[in-house]
Design a protein around this nucleic acid. Structure first.
Length: 220
DNA sequence: CTATCTCTGTATGTTACCTCA
DNA sequence: TTTGAGGTAACATACAGAGAT
């Protein structure tokens, strides 16, 4: 694509003329050849853009001193870009060029806008996901506290009045097979939760697969 | 067919600039 | 007028995939 030795020298001099950006130079030394040429092309493209007398030459790209001037996109430009993004979050080269021409921007600017827009979208989604997981966590914590409390109450009841304990209805809406750890709703199947408990107790610890029993504190 | 190289596009993180309270 | 925070355009870097050799 390019003459690499010349390019490397050129890019080094260009980068040193830019604002202090040490790893730019580092990258030119450490990146594979393909990356170096890519960087050079991108840099040249931008400079060509500002030199080239495009419609945005006053505000696009970097100034002659290497400081980068930031273009503020107009409301109309943003609206068009937004609309385009909604239709397709990624652009093919033709769409990019067409959009750039329509908006009076350089294709590179359109490309950058789409990159940043995708990043913003992803960030927003991450925030939403994070909120959702936080709520899940809170719900589970509450549930856990509720169940712990229930366990304590049952332990106390078992000590005070074992007969009541053995004949009471299932204490929770959730049941779990202790061996396979499947959870299901109770109250719907077994003829008697007390039977289950007795059965489990009879089998010395209650390992009865697929036979839902109420979650119980371990016997001590 | 496989390995390697090159190019291109995308994702992600960072920097610099602008606006506004 | 100054200043700090937030938004965002521009840039840096790593990586993946496709095509060529």
């Amino acid at each position: 694509m390019m003459e690499k030795a010349e390019d490397l020298r050129l890019s080094l001099s260009l980068s040193s003329s830019l604002a202090p950006r040490t790893h730019h130079v580092d990258m030119l030394f450490h990146a594979p050849a393909a990356k170096r040429s890519e960087v050079v092309v991108a840099a040249d493209e931008d400079r060509a853009g500002q030199r080239g007398g495009g419609s945005d030459e006053e505000d696009g790209g970097c100034g002659v001193d290497g400081s980068r001037k930031k273009l503020r996109l107009s409301k109309d430009q943003s609206a068009v870009l937004e609309g385009s993004f909604r239709e397709h979050p990624t652009l093919n080269p033709r769409q990019k060029a067409a959009l750039a021409q329509q908006l009076g921007l350089r294709p590179r600017q359109v490309e950058v806008w789409f990159q940043n827009r995708r990043a913003r979208t992803k960030l927003k989604q991450t925030e939403v996901d994070c909120e959702f997981l936080k709520r899940c966590c809170e719900t589970l914590t509450e549930e856990n506290q509720r169940l712990q409390k229930e366990v304590q109450e049952l332990r106390a009841l078992k000590l005070v009045s074992p007969h009541v304990y053995m004949n009471m209805s299932p204490p929770t809406t959730l049941t779990m097979c202790p061996s396979c750890e499947r959870v299901s709703n109770s109250n719907s199947n077994s003829k008697s939760a007390a039977d289950d408990r007795r059965g489990a107790a009879a089998e010395g610890g209650g390992i009865v697969c697929h036979r839902p029993i109420a979650v119980r504190p371990q016997q001590s």
